[in-house]
Simulated assay, not measured.
Amino acid sequence: MAWPWVLAAVIVVIDQVTKNLVQAALAPGEGIILIPDFLNLVHAHNRGVAFGMLDGAGGWQVPLLAVVTFGVIIALGVWLFRLGRSEWGTRLALGLILGGAVGNLIDRVWLGYVVDFVDVHWKSVYHYPAFNVADSGITLGAMVLVGVLIREELAVRRDRAR
């Protein structure tokens, strides 16, 4: 079952292409309003983790995060390799997460930061941290995995109730 690996590769390619396009079009810190008061295209650098945590930690976090991410990629790859063919939901989730993790690891290793470019906000009331295609893959994969786990738990509870 190669399709989760292909999905991961597609996410990596789309992630890297979009990041390269943003870097070519915008200087760091620049942005373009796509939908006023809602969506901007920006060129942001994130040396930290999700939501910019540890971004200003001084640089020590970059190699640590790269090593941790590499370990997570290996663990998820082994998990995916060992999955049965019928576990399509988990395979989908792991393909999405792996693609996102590899995409962000490439940035972290080659650039020393992750390029983010999708900036969603609601006027000046709410501002979500900038993200990228890799982050979207990781988030969507995590949501699918949670859904799979909930479905499995509900099935176990139904079986116990019989």
Rank of each mutant, 00 (worst) to 15 (best):
K123T: 10
Q16T: 06
F38R: 15
I74Y: 08
D119C: 08
L7A: 05
N132T: 14
Q61D: 04
I35W: 13
L94K: 05
W5F: 13
V22P: 10
D116R: 08
W110P: 00
V115W: 00
I97A: 09
H45I: 05
E152R: 15
G141N: 11
L80A: 07
G59D: 07
W5H: 06
L149V: 10
G141A: 12
Y126C: 00
A24Y: 06
L34V: 14
R160Q: 15
D135H: 09
T139E: 04
L140R: 04
I32G: 00
A161C: 00
S124V: 05
R158V: 02
V17P: 03
R151A: 15
N40V: 06
V115S: 07
V146T: 12
L140E: 01
W88D: 05
I97K: 02
G95P: 02
W88A: 08
P28W: 07
K19P: 04
R162T: 12
D119A: 12
L80P: 11
E153T: 13
V133T: 14
S124K: 10
L140P: 01
K19F: 12
V10D: 01
V22N: 09
P63E: 08
I73L: 10
A57E: 00
L92V: 04
I97S: 01
W60D: 11
A9S: 14
I73F: 00
T139W: 02
R85A: 12
G58T: 06
V42W: 02
K19E: 08
I138E: 09
G99C: 09
P36N: 09
I106G: 02
L83W: 07
R47C: 01
V156Y: 07
L64M: 13
A101M: 03
G89K: 03
L92Y: 03
G77W: 04
D119L: 08
G147D: 04
V146L: 14
I106S: 05
D15T: 08
L21V: 14
L26Q: 07
A44H: 12
L54E: 04
L105Y: 02
G29F: 09
F51D: 02
W122F: 15
R151H: 12
V102R: 00
D37Y: 07
L39R: 09
V109N: 03
L54W: 07
D135A: 09
L65N: 06
L65Q: 06
I106E: 00
Y128L: 06
G58M: 06
D159K: 13
L98Y: 04
V72W: 10
F38D: 11
V10A: 15
A130W: 10
I150K: 11
M1D: 11
G103L: 03
G52S: 13
V156M: 08
V148P: 13
V42N: 10
E30L: 00
A93K: 01
D15V: 10
V102P: 00
